[in-house]
Amino acid sequence: MGGISRYILQRLLLTIPMLFILITLVFIVMRMMPGGPAEAMLGGRNVSLEQLAKVRHEYGLDRPLGVQYLSYMDDILHGNFKNSVLTGRPVLTELFTRFPATLELAFWGMLFALIFGFGTGIIASTQADRPIDHTIRVFHIGSFAMPLFWLGLMLQIIFAVKLGWLPVASRISGRMAFSFQSVTGFYLIDALLSGNGAIIADVAKHLILPSITLGFAQAGFLGRITRASMLEVLDADYITTARAKGVKERIVIFSHALHNALIPIVTVFGLQFAILMGGAILTETVFSWPGVAQFLVRSIDARDFHSIQGSIVFIAIFISVINLIVDVLYSVIDPRVRY
């Protein structure tokens, strides 16, 4: 136990300077903006130079960079993400109202990736070098090369516009939205809680295309790793022994081999989550998904610098926490890493 808590502490101590660096980076990047945020905010209005100066002053943009940086750091340390320039509401509120949407999408996307990735990976490894293996490998490599937004649009064209089976975009149908109460922000959970079959079906339908879109590239990646590590494990002595003992092939694969093949997969999970967040920015754009990533894109378009800053810091913290959890989990699965 002492080992684990020491390890967690170690990782935590490492997370803090990393976050610090990221947050500093965000500050530097935000100050690269041409024209300055004040001009962007007032853009196109009939404003006087005095009014511009007033806005600059109001947002503290007329102070020296060093002072701005210190107050920026101070604000973040105190959890003060300021107000959105665009909507006037606290950025943190804006983020928290949208976060469940992103998390829900990420969850189903990841689940799709896991099922599809494991599935194809295992099939490929047991059918090594047969045509089905080659087909799956082509799919794995191809999924790398597939632009996520394009996949999303193609799915929309086929399943929504041409076939009309699934909705084009958004989380829930307009009419449903008002006969249903979202408590957790996770619509599927809320729908299940409501016990209304029509709502459950509607929410689930809305989730299918975005989840596939977001999870597709991950599925290919996980499939590749699964296949590779399964091949490695399947050759190992203990598997041969198990087979020799007459253990059923299905049990060999799912109980013995898969268990050990999991370890390298868990390692990449943290990083994959970061990539997933990157994919979310495109998926949410294509599917009008009201999540954090879409908020970031809209803030960028509107040059709402408090919101941009806040969103990035928020994502950075989220990713760091995920990485921390994954690392700790990994150390539980494979105690060697702690030393």
Binding site: L92, T93, F96, T97, P100, G174, R175, F178, S179, F180, Q181, S182, V183, T184, G185
Partner: peptide, 21 residues
């Protein structure tokens, strides 16, 4: 924060009358 989230999602329902959307 939790409270904020709850408020943001605490949506009153209007099942009785069909609104114009």
């Amino acid at each position: 924060i939790v409270l904020l989230v709850m408020v943001a999602f605490g949506i009153a329902t209007f099942a009785a009358q069909a609104p114009l959307i």
